[in-house]
């Protein structure tokens, strides 16, 4: 490892931790990446009927939220930026 890498490198322990957190979110929700992709596409289809969505800024994921009882429950988190409302066309 070179001197420059020494400062740039993200420690592999932290890489492991981040990867693990991501993989556990879908494991715990019992939801595969393919199903997430389908959910995402369906949501886009429905919302697009009414407004124009910024597809690049779209963020849909399953997160773990506290259930108020020391545990966590999965929640579907969707951040969908709108480019333009389509109300005028109606």
């Amino acid at each position: 490892m070179g001197f420059a890498d020494f400062f740039r490198r993200k420690s592999s322990g932290n890489v492991a931790k981040d990867r693990l957190k991501l993989v556990l979110v879908s494991d715990r929700a019992g939801c595969s990446p393919e199903i997430m992709e389908q959910i995402k596409n369906d949501i886009i289809q429905v919302i697009s009927k009414y407004v124009e969505i910024d597809l690049d800024g779209l963020d849909i994921k399953i997160t773990q939220e506290p259930d108020g009882n020391n545990g966590t429950v999965p929640a579907l988190f969707a951040n969908i930026p709108i480019k333009e409302m389509r109300t005028k066309k109606l």
Binding site: S12, G13, N14, K17, K21, G71
Partner: peptide
């Protein structure tokens, strides 16, 4: 920093 600590593992598994 090349291995997760026991604290990391406990945090993840709760």
């Amino acid at each position: 920093g090349d291995m997760m600590s026991s604290d990391d593992v406990v945090e993840i598994l709760a």
